[in-house]
Simulated scan of single mutants.
Amino acid sequence: MNQINHNSIIEILKKLVEIPSPSGNTEKVISAVERLLEPLGVEMKRNRKGGLIVTIEGKEKEKQRMLTAHVDTLGAMVKEIKNDGRLKLAMIGGFRWNAVEGEYCEIETSDGSTFTGTIVIHQSSVHVYKDAGEAKRDEKNMEIRLDEQVTTDKEVKELGIEVGDFVSFDPRFQVTESGFVKSRHLDDKASVAILLHLITLIKEHQLTLPYTTHFLISNNEEIGYGGNSNIPEETVEYLAVDMGAIGDGQATTEYCVSICAKDSSGPYNLKLRKNLVDIAKTNQLNYAVDIYPFYGSDASAAIRAGHDIIHGLVGPGIDASHAHERTHFDSLKNTSSLLYHYLLSDIVE
């Protein structure tokens, strides 16, 4: 599919990852998605949870599809302001503390002001703390060192920082000459960028889809319930587009599109999975069928919520999920191509 342009996907992706959007604080990034789509004249509406639903009318309206990708990310909240002016944290999403040690971060106050800092372990200095290497990376020891001249909790509060303020991680977005994309929050902004690129292609090339199709840009996936509502009654197929997990025992790579057979919620629909594999084979795409042992998606959340749908999960292969993530142009292209051909295929029943 030579209409797929990975440079366009990466341009969108860069814009998205540079907008802080931890789960629970996604207004700015959803507004940015709306601005990207406005020139296309697509039908858009927000749900009450703050997610965005884009609808493109197709030939068939009695049977419909929904695709979803989530724009919310991992992050944190200010849990406590310490007497020495440091900030303790509460996690948003399922990462490990060691994955954010040393990361630059941004704190957004309730009035919209922002302050920068670094996430460090309290026992950072090897010249002071004998256990600097062995100290446990946990909520007790990890803290934010603010880039402000503060040494007391009172001085921090005078800045306007309070318990409950959102903390976002510096994405450190980078594209290499060898075709790798390195950034935090490729989960799942890479998939959102792919869907936005496909919507653009459909509208610019005036393609008619076989079925009315909804694209849900969800905003609470990292905390478990992003895509479990606002699914039209006519929806037969529901496809989550989210990262493919890479590691020991996994078939997925940074170069393929990953088709999930099963995750922690159980198996995905077999007929839909077979259809996705057939599409990949027919179009000579690099793909892998895989099982993600510690994973859940918007599609599995929708099933748990009781929706009577055929559900599936695909996405670009992303290394080091929930840490310092990386993928490749090839994975973005293979995923985009699979989804393009899927959107033009028949529903399975």
Rank of each mutant, 00 (worst) to 15 (best):
D278N: 13
G133L: 09
H311R: 15
V128C: 04
G317C: 04
A302Q: 08
E158V: 04
A135T: 11
D170C: 11
K14C: 05
V33D: 06
Y255L: 11
Y268N: 09
F215E: 13
H311W: 11
Q3G: 10
S300P: 15
R184K: 12
S337E: 07
T235R: 15
L159F: 02
K88S: 10
A301H: 14
F294H: 14
E101F: 03
L195I: 09
A193S: 10
L198S: 07
D188R: 04
P293Y: 01
K189V: 00
G102C: 03
N7V: 07
L207I: 15
T335K: 13
G58Q: 12
I194A: 05
G317F: 02
T213L: 12
N228G: 08
C256Y: 01
L195A: 02
H324W: 07
C260W: 03
D298L: 09
I199Q: 07
A76V: 03
S23M: 05
D84N: 15
E254T: 13
P171Y: 00
M142H: 04
Y292C: 08
G112L: 05
Y104R: 15
I246R: 01
M243P: 12
E27S: 10
G312S: 09
V181I: 11
E103C: 09
H324F: 08
D308A: 08
S183E: 06
L198D: 01
S168Y: 03
D187H: 06
L344E: 10
D319S: 12
G317D: 03
L216T: 01
E106L: 14
F329C: 05
A135C: 10
E234F: 06
M243F: 00
L198I: 06
G112K: 15
L285Q: 10
A299W: 11
L159G: 07
N230R: 14
L89R: 10
S297A: 06
D290P: 14
N98M: 09
V156C: 04
